[in-house]
Write a protein that binds this DNA or RNA. Structure first.
Lengths: 147, 147
DNA sequence: TACATAATGTAGCTTTGGCTACACTTTGGC
DNA sequence: GCCAAAGTGTAGCCAAAGCTACATTATGTA
């Protein structure tokens, strides 16, 4: 084998770190859906009294079928409580998650706006960014916003 | 139906905007993998002369099987060129993507570090954030870093 | 040159999250 | 109280991205 060319034992850059970062990013991904749902359910409950499947579907931009199946998973995971043809409720764990998400979302949006980014762009980018912000980075964002 | 409670025609918050944001975030998601692969291949080619499946697997933190199947997709999409048992090459489109990603990654990492976030955290968070940063936000990041 | 080992490829499974099409419940209004 | 329409549920399809187990190819070295 051409040792010099193929898989040198100690690569120039710490690929192990990058691999771990990417692995973490991927792991987070399943949780992102849960966060979006929790936040949407909390919002709907606050603004309309209860969250229904159609409302969630509209809100999340998917069909009611996808909402249904995802809710089943979230129930397995103990975040929501669903009964056929009834409104959707967050469990205490789900409520906690929703609150954390809402807070994180606000911090990210405010931070982006304080950088001079227009509201609409800030909202769109925050939706993607918020799930990947570590506590330390979130704190730095908050600190900058209130500087 | 309880009109007041269920799916009021004009919700308080612009849920259509949120739905669109989320839809966009999801759409981007398939592209994230492509970006990670393009960047990794370019990096490996630069540092080791060529990119091989095992190197990519190590780098991305997945098995060689996953790398293989993903490469097949990226070839369908015209980003890489692969031949059995041969090194992996980026097409011009793939190279362009890799350069953009590398640039975006650098900007995000430098920005986070300039906020006082430690290098390691900055790297990890950037890996998740970089795929969701719009051009406008990226420009704002760069401007802040060089302020 | 032969062969052991590393690299690569393939088969087939899983989960997640999309979808359409169709079936069944609820419910508001007549 | 009926019934159409809205809401909800189910069946079954797809693609992406992960995996293990096994088969095949390349290649450095003895």
């Amino acid at each position: 084998m051409k040792k010099a060319l193929r898989s040198s034992p100690k690569p120039v850059r710490p690929s192990a770190l990058q691999a771990e970062s990417l692995r973490q990013t991927r792991r987070e991904h399943a949780a992102e859906t849960a966060e979006d749902y929790a936040e949407a359910i909390a919002d709907l409950a606050a603004s309309q009294g209860e969250a229904r499947v159609v409302d969630l579907a509209r809100r999340l931009g998917v069909t009611h079928v996808t909402v249904n199946r995802t809710l089943a998973r979230l129930q397995r995971e103990g975040l929501v409580s669903v009964q056929p043809y009834r409104a959707i409720f967050l469990t205490p764990a789900g409520r906690k998650l929703a609150e954390e998400c809402h807070h994180r979302h606000s911090v990210v949006v405010d931070f982006l706006k304080s950088l001079g980014i227009p509201e609409k762009t800030a909202e769109i980018d925050a939706e993607g960014i918020e799930h990947h912000v570590s506590p330390g980075t979130l704190a730095a964002f908050a600190k900058y916003t209130n500087r």
